[in-house]
Design a binder for these strands. Structure first.
Lengths: 145, 145
DNA sequence: TTCTTCGGCTTTTGTAAACTGCACTAGCAG
DNA sequence: CTGCTAGTGCAGTTTACAAAAGCCGAAGAA
């Protein structure tokens, strides 16, 4: 019932890109160091994000990553699901067949019913917020120097 | 980002008690067999539920468990939290000090902000439903014989 | 007192997250 | 075209925790 490090790192990594000018290509090493994330682990995460079209990779000298869309077009949901796959509170939520219990009580599972509701609430929050929202919050709370 | 087996077993176990007449003392072995749950594992779970005052244990011959409150007075939240402890999507949600990242960005964490919102939605669902609700759903969907 | 069932603690097992390493490839710079 | 840099892809290793099993003791009914 917790977020994985991969998800956490993914959001922070992408958020770091969003903080900068969108034309700036940023290497993994910089993100990794700035955010305190193991570089190879972050590489794996960004590979997924790259394939999903959330970030764009640039190889060669002075290569790195940029966002491939505007920050307000990237929902938190899509970042999380890219990294972890569709999250489900229980396996059976996605497909009834996953539930080894269902036959025993006439094919109906009350807990599943509740989890579907709960999950919907969660997803709505993540779908209803974009990178731009997080960025705005962060800027509003940054201590001015 | 998933429920543990302990939580799942806990809800099904308590729900099984709720299905029966409230005066009936039901031994673990019966619940365990009926629900397909390892008995010793269920014992551990029910120990917590007993301490939390959700179920009441009866030792000795023909002992077992009963609900210690009415089904409509037992929220799903209290079952889940008893078994697993307060669930948090990230450690830092409970207390800022848990966040090793907060200093780096001026003590503010945008992801945390979002998770607090998301968590609130989840908790509301679990707090807003009781065992009686699950029981009612189950009965409404039982295939009549 | 004896059998039954829960109580508490310890240990084992299994699995997935978290992280590491290496060989390879694409691309830019000079 | 040479050489360096940074991402790609896959195959490990380590670690942590969930899940389960085991053992002995305590409480309670017959």
């Amino acid at each position: 019932m917790q977020f994985t490090k991969a998800e956490e790192y993914g959001v922070f990594g992408v958020l770091y890109l969003a903080e900068k000018d969108s034309s700036l290509v940023t290497p993994l090493s910089e993100i990794s160091e700035a955010q305190g994330i193991p570089e190879k682990f972050l590489a794996k995460i960004f590979q997924s994000l790259s394939k999903a079209g959330i970030v764009r990779s640039h190889r060669g000298v002075r290569g790195g990553f940029t966002l491939s869309k505007k920050a307000n077009e990237i929902t938190i949901k899509e970042i999380l699901e890219t990294i972890q796959g569709p999250y489900h509170l229980m396996k059976c939520v996605s497909s009834m067949s996953e539930c080894d219990r269902s036959e025993k009580i006439n094919g109906y599972c009350a807990l599943r019913e509740l989890l579907v509701i709960a999950e919907k609430q969660l997803v709505d929050v993540f779908e209803g917020h974009t990178l731009a929202d997080l960025l705005a919050w962060q800027r509003a709370n940054q201590i001015p120097h």
